Simulated scan of single mutants.
Amino acid sequence: MLQSKPSRAGSSLLLLAAVIGFAVAIYAWLTPLTGVTGTIGALGVAIACVLLAILTFLLRAASARGARIFLIVVTLVVLIGIGFAAALLHQYIITAAMVAGLIGLIMLSNDSTRHQRRVNA
């Protein structure tokens, strides 16, 4: 099934947010003098970003309405959690990436409601 442009753009934006979050969290976890070197918080954010990427691929593949709604809610919770944890770690680049990911999730959720309508004769 071909995806529309908002769907591709939304999932690409969400995936880009996950990749940026993972890269910055790993950088902060490994690099000395970042303030969070070797902490469980930075590693947790990196693992959560991997989970966000997996949720993005699952959301792209889901076609049932209930599954899409469930994945959208779970993805929203993960986005908010990563953004909050990154703010507590003073890694505001990750928080900004999660805001961009939220925009991508909104694009994905708007696209899913537009194409699922049925016509009754």
Rank of each mutant, 00 (worst) to 15 (best):
R65I: 15
L43P: 03
C49R: 04
F70L: 15
V45A: 04
A42V: 05
V36R: 05
V73L: 13
F57R: 14
V45C: 00
V73T: 13
A53K: 01
I47F: 09
A42H: 00
T56K: 04
V45Y: 01
F57I: 13
L71W: 02
A64P: 00
R65D: 14
G35R: 07
G44D: 04
A67S: 13
A61S: 14
G38P: 01
A61Y: 09
R60I: 14
T39H: 03
A64L: 12
L43H: 00
A53E: 02
I72F: 09
L52K: 01
S63K: 15
L51C: 09
A61L: 13
G35A: 08
T75V: 06
T37C: 04
L58I: 03
L43Y: 03
A64W: 10
I40D: 07
T56P: 01
F57V: 14
R68C: 08
L71S: 05
T37V: 10
F57M: 14
R60D: 13
A62Q: 05
I72D: 07
I72Y: 06
T37L: 05
V50I: 15
A46W: 03
I40E: 10
L43A: 13
I54R: 09
G35M: 06
I40R: 07
L59G: 14
L51E: 09
G44Q: 07
V45T: 12
A67H: 09
T75P: 02
L55V: 02
F57C: 10
G35E: 11
I47N: 00
L59H: 12
F70P: 00
A42T: 12
L52E: 08
A53F: 10
A42L: 05
V50A: 11
L43V: 03
A53I: 03
L43T: 03
I40M: 09
R60S: 10
I72K: 08
G38Y: 03
G41W: 06
L59S: 14
A42N: 06
A42P: 02
F57H: 07
A48I: 00
I47Q: 05
V73K: 12
A67W: 12
T37R: 13
I40W: 06
T37M: 08
I72N: 08
V45H: 00
T56N: 15
I54D: 10
A42E: 05
F70Q: 11
A61W: 10
V36E: 05
A48R: 11
L59R: 15
V45S: 01
L58S: 11
V45I: 15
L58K: 15
T75G: 08
L71E: 08
I72W: 05
F70A: 15
I47T: 11
V73M: 11
A67E: 14
C49T: 08
I54Q: 04
I69H: 06
V74R: 06
V74W: 04
T75C: 10
R68K: 14
G44P: 02
A46F: 04
F70M: 13
A48K: 12
L55S: 12
R65H: 13
L55R: 08
L59P: 01
T39E: 13
